[in-house]
Design a binder for these strands. Structure first.
Lengths: 342, 342
DNA sequence: CCTCCGGATTGAAACGTTACAACAACAGAG
DNA sequence: CTCTGTTGTTGTAACGTTTCAATCCGGAGG
């Protein structure tokens, strides 16, 4: 392969092989139409020149690209990387590439990525948006770029979405604690602006009500974010209460939060699960790797991703596509962090 | 914005605004050359038609794209996402987009991504390769696509690399334990095929030697991978030894491994750090969030990423670029998981 | 010997953008 | 009035690929 001047083009290959540029293209795209001898000659020329097809030009001519993109909310959260994993597998099956973009909770960055992706004419965009109401989420599909919303919902006609039933998830987490006999349960999470926080809380309330307990059985401990430090802080606030009226169990909106809570509580001398039972949410790998393995609500992460990718691929390819709102049901994984109250 | 037919092009905008297509291009690229009134007319037409610049065509004409890509080894490992973070920031400063690709330890997927990225003519590729000796890593730069190797090294003339001094990291981890007075230290990690495992072990051996202890003071516990389950397994093997000859401290190649080890040891009734001190490596967020916060070797993750991105940007832009092998020095973060032996 | 056929190959047009030389319009200087 | 700028606008030629109608050629059928 030569490094001379600029990258070799079909024209250069054609010249080197002594054929027309149309023939080179045929070798690339419809090899069966080319005689064996010329094909070999062309292939050799390509190898010698180190020819690399210019996807940009192909795409311009063809109008379509071979890539999907997932704009993720937080690449540092294992939940989202597992979702991305599912997408990758589906993309690979369809012979597409998946590019990951990390908005990292920054609205400007999210908008910038969406803009670039639309300009690049990607086949479709998967996104876990910072704000599901953002107008761009309607504009892209209106202009022809399919968008699938992942792990959020919005009942709107412009796109498909794949999410998980958070009310149900909150409910089964609370039910589990109630069945164990806990009657004072802390709900840890926030801010309430986040849809999942609201939904999971609503589910927990349903469970409390169904168990015939008063709403006050649920002690809401609001946090500023779903992070480890906020979990630690919630732990400190919990411990500040007199033991008599302190909840005997806590359910967290997030495993990450639960890990912070667990750390602080154990650090301050509480026994988990005997003094305080803890339920997390998401079932990230680190939840089962905690010193006291966490009971957690598991979401079908891989499936969320692969289903979302399938939807966006379908929308891009099938003119008769009709939008779909998929809702998966989470389940509970019981581990050592929950037990009957002492 | 109209959704009629196909996406609006500069030509459509020009027609709608009653100007030539060159003028539209000027509005886009050199607005100062256009009179205010025509500019406004063109801008209005663009808004009405929902014009989105076709980056593909721009790029074909310009020859250069506005994107970088990072082919990461394992998007589920927080270390790499933090590195990616640093790259994002540097890319944003240079007004480039960063696409993340997850090879996920699969050689075919890594090769597929490299191929597509080269075809897309990205400005540059950042990669933490599965195998630093892979021939593609030389071919891309030879054909004109800059490649920077991240968190691996290879003394070769074809590319820059950014890595961390693993021998030094292994050394300071071991020194810390030795200074605390530990004389039987387990080294947990593997397989040895991984360069970092070899280097960190070498560093640990240097420290032991410098402390005047025999090489046998270091008990090597080889694992099959750097994962939580492997850490648990190592813990079980450690505990199987009679207490008298059991190491009083362990240093792990990885925090993830260390978390598994911690979990199993505590689960089997050992006190950490009193019965067993543990040092991790990478200082991932979950290391400080563990029930017993982990002492760990910290690498400048963000800096690794931003430096790597700067190098690749420089190589892409500056014809006089000369390759550079950057080596950062890690440091130790002491937390509750290490203490003087009982 | 002419015609026709089918496979192999070619040449030109098109995709949407940008750059650039050329041009128009008009003002002010001489 | 002409000349010289200046300012704004236009038309056209690329960029590298794919597609498709047109052509070429050798051989089979009449």
């Amino acid at each position: 392969m030569s490094r001379s001047g600029h990258a070799a083009s079909v024209k250069d290959v054609a010249a080197a092989a002594g054929v027309s540029l149309g023939t080179v293209s045929n070798v690339l795209n419809r090899p069966e139409r080319v005689s064996t001898s010329t094909r070999e000659r062309v292939e050799q020329a390509m190898a010698e020149l180190g020819f690399v097809r210019n996807e940009t030009a192909r795409q311009l001519r063809a109008g379509s690209s071979r890539t999907l993109a997932y704009v993720m909310l937080d690449a540092g959260n294992p939940f989202f990387t597992d979702v991305a994993h599912g997408m990758e597998d589906a993309a690979e099956d369809a012979d597409l590439s998946l590019f990951l973009c990390n908005s990292n909770h920054l609205p400007e960055r999210e908008a910038a990525y969406l803009g670039r992706l639309e300009q690049q004419r990607v086949q479709g965009v998967l996104i876990t948006p910072i704000d599901p109401e953002h107008p761009l989420l309607e504009e892209l599909p209106a202009r022809g770029t399919p968008v699938v919303v992942v792990d959020r919902t919005r009942d709107v006609e412009t796109h498909c979405s794949v999410a998980v039933d958070d009310v149900h998830g909150g409910r089964i987490a609370a039910e589990h604690l109630l069945e164990l006999g806990h009657e004072r349960i802390a709900f840890v999470g926030g801010p309430e602006a986040i849809g999942q926080v609201r939904d999971r809380l609503a589910g927990a309330r349903l469970a409390v009500e169904a168990a015939g307990l008063p709403p006050s059985a649920l002690h809401v401990l609001t946090t500023d974010a779903l992070t480890v430090p906020q979990g630690r802080d919630a732990g400190a606030r919990l411990l500040a209460r007199p033991a008599r009226e302190r909840p005997t169990a806590a359910m967290c909106v997030n495993d990450v939060l639960a890990l912070g809570l667990l750390q602080r509580c154990v650090g301050l001398g509480l026994d988990v699960p005997d003094d305080l039972a803890i339920v997390g949410y998401d079932d990230i790998d680190f939840a089962s790797a905690a010193t006291v393995p966490l009971t957690s609500v598991r979401q079908p992460r891989h499936l969320i991703g692969s289903k979302a990718a399938e939807l966006v691929i379908d929308e891009a390819g099938d003119p008769g596509h009709h939008h779909e709102q998929v809702l998966f049901t989470p389940d509970l994984v019981v581990r050592a962090s929950t037990r009957r109250p002492a």
